[in-house]
C-alpha cells in the first residue's frame, strides 16, 4: 500500500516494511468522517433534487433558502427571479454553502484524510505514488475560499431572516381554537432553526478566511485596535472551527428533516405558544 521507494520505504530511510507502527485505532476517525460525510452527502443530494416538501409554513428548509426558483406559495421571501429554472430551487443556491464547506480549511483536512487518504492519519503512509497538494489545478482553486465566505455571510443573513419568519403565526388550517393564528408563534421548528442559525454563524464567523479578513492580514495590530479586537474574537471562535463545522452540518440536516416530516404530514409541529 505504501508508495514504494518513494516514502517511508525509500532507500536512505530506516529499513522498516510496515506502512505504520501505530497500534492505536488510527482508522477510527477517518472512518467516522467518511461514514458521516457520505451519509450527509446522500441525504442532502436526495433532498436537494427532490424539489418538494421543503416548506411547512412558517418554516422554510435551509436547503431551499432563499427560494428563488419556482417555489411553493409563501416560500419565496426574496421573489422568484429564477422562476424559469426547470430543476429544484435548492440547486440554485446550494452551490454557495456547498462551495464554502468544500473549500473550508477544516473540511479540507477532514476529507483529504477520510476520502483521499492523503494521509489517512498522522504517521500512516498514504497509498499514492505522487503528490502535488494544492499547488496545481484543480486543487489550487481551494484558494477561492474567501469568496465563498462572502457568499456564506449573505446566506447566514437570509437564514437569520428565516428564523424571524419562523415566529410568524401558523396558517389557519393549523389553528386549534380562536386566536391561535394571531400574534407570534413558537414551535419546535422555531427552536431548531434558532439553534441551526446559531451554529451556522459560529461556523461562518470562525472561518480562517474571516480571521484573515477582519485583521489577520495586518502586520501592525497596534495601528488598528478595532480590527485587532475583532481578530482576537474570531481567533477565539476559530479554535473550535471544526466543532462548529460538525454541529452546523448536523443542525442543518435536522432542521430540513423536521420540515420535511411536517410538510409531508408525518408529524405535527410541537407548539410552545
Amino acid at each position: 500500500m505504501a508508495s514504494t521507494d518513494q516514502g517511508v520505504t525509500s532507500p536512505t530511510r530506516a529499513r522498516i516494511t510496515e506502512r505504520t507502527l501505530r497500534q492505536d485505532r488510527w482508522w477510527l476517525q477517518p472512518l467516522t468522517t467518511f461514514v458521516v460525510f457520505s451519509a450527509f452527502v446522500v441525504y442532502a443530494t436526495v433532498r436537494a433534487f427532490m424539489g418538494r416538501d421543503y416548506y411547512a409554513s412558517p418554516y422554510l428548509s435551509p436547503f431551499y433558502s432563499p427560494c428563488l426558483g419556482d417555489c411553493v406559495e409563501g416560500a419565496s421571501d426574496f421573489g422568484q427571479p429564477f422562476a424559469w429554472w426547470p430543476l429544484s430551487a435548492a440547486l440554485i443556491i446550494l452551490i454557495f454553502p456547498l462551495g464554502f464547506r468544500m473549500t473550508c480549511y477544516y473540511y479540507r483536512k477532514a476529507y483529504y484524510r477520510a476520502f483521499w487518504l492523503s494521509p489517512p492519519a498522522c504517521g500512516v503512509a498514504e497509498p499514492h505514488q505522487s503528490y502535488s497538494g494544492e499547488s496545481k489545478l484543480p486543487l489550487v482553486l481551494q484558494n477561492v475560499h474567501r469568496y465563498f465566505w462572502y457568499a456564506a455571510v449573505l446566506v447566514g443573513l437570509v437564514l437569520t431572516f428565516d428564523v424571524v419568519l419562523a415566529f410568524r403565526p401558523m396558517p389557519a388550517e393549523y389553528a386549534v381554537g380562536d386566536g391561535e393564528t394571531s400574534g407570534i408563534h413558537m414551535g419546535l421548528g422555531t427552536l431548531l432553526m434558532i439553534l441551526n442559525v446559531a451554529f451556522i454563524w459560529l461556523y461562518t464567523l470562525s472561518c480562517h478566511s474571516c480571521r484573515h479578513i477582519v485583521g489577520g492580514r495586518l502586520r501592525h495590530f497596534s495601528q488598528h485596535p478595532v480590527r485587532y479586537r475583532l481578530w482576537t474574537w474570531v481567533s477565539r471562535l476559530n479554535t473550535s472551527h471544526g466543532k462548529w463545522a460538525w454541529y452546523s452540518l448536523f443542525s442543518v440536516a435536522i432542521v430540513d428533516l423536521y420540515i420535511f416530516l411536517l410538510a409531508t404530514g408525518t408529524i405535527q409541529d410541537v407548539r410552545f405558544f
Partner: peptide, 28 residues
C-alpha cells in the same frame, strides 16, 4: 512549496511545544 501543504494538521498534532502550526502559521 506552501501550495503543496494540504493542511491535514499532523504537524500541529505532534508539536511538543503545542504550537498551532496549521491554524496560526500555515493557513494565515
Amino acid at each position: 512549496g506552501l501550495g503543496m501543504c494540504n493542511i491535514t494538521k499532523c504537524c500541529t498534532e505532534v508539536c511538543p511545544e503545542g504550537i498551532r502550526i496549521t491554524d496560526n502559521a500555515i493557513i494565515p
